[in-house]
Amino acid sequence: MVQAWYMDDSADDPRLPHRAQPDRPVGLEQLRTLGVLYWKLDADKYENDPELEKIRRERNYSWMDVITICKDKLPNYEEKIKMFFEEHLHLDEEIRYILEGSGYFDVRDKEDRWIRISMEKGDMITLPAGIYHRFTLDEKIQGNSHSS
């Protein structure tokens, strides 16, 4: 099950959990009030998963792209990681589905406080249009990449 929490204000490595002290967990219902929806799917069969197809049909998702975020496979890896962690928003709903590995999506609540959503293989979220967000990998070694 996905975990989410309010973040601390530390400027340390973004790949750390950054849990506020005391811990302030955020449940799926609170995420839903922000327009963030969550599903747990079988990432090993994403290419022909009937549950994913049903979600795509119901929500009118017509295309997808797959991005691999690891040093060995993503050109300009360091620049891309910095870019993904820059706070931004989209004019359309954004769908993110973790097929392998793990990372954090941070979203702002209605009071501009950061909520960190810890995602791993099989987790899928949708972010509504206009919500400020960012992404970073976590501390776990991703794919073929090596921490330095």
Rank of each mutant, 00 (worst) to 15 (best):
A4G: 06
W5G: 01
M7G: 08
M7F: 03
S10P: 13
S10N: 14
A11P: 04
H18F: 06
H18G: 05
P22Q: 02
P22F: 00
R24V: 07
P25T: 02
G27Y: 07
E29S: 12
T33G: 04
L34T: 05
G35C: 05
L37N: 15
K40G: 02
K40S: 07
K40P: 00
K45Y: 09
Y46S: 08
Y46H: 15
E47Q: 14
E51I: 00
E51G: 00
L52A: 10
L52C: 10
L52P: 05
R57W: 06
S62H: 15
I67E: 01
P75N: 09
Y77H: 05
F85M: 04
E86I: 06
E86A: 07
L89W: 12
R96I: 10
S102M: 04
G103F: 01
Y104E: 12
F105D: 04
D106P: 02
D106A: 01
V107H: 05
R108G: 01
R108N: 01
E111T: 01
D112N: 15
R116F: 03
R116Y: 05
S118G: 08
G122F: 03
D123G: 04
M124V: 09
I125C: 03
L127Q: 09
G130Y: 09
Y132R: 13
Y132Q: 07
R134E: 10
F135K: 09
T136S: 15
E139I: 10
I141K: 14
H146N: 14
S148V: 05
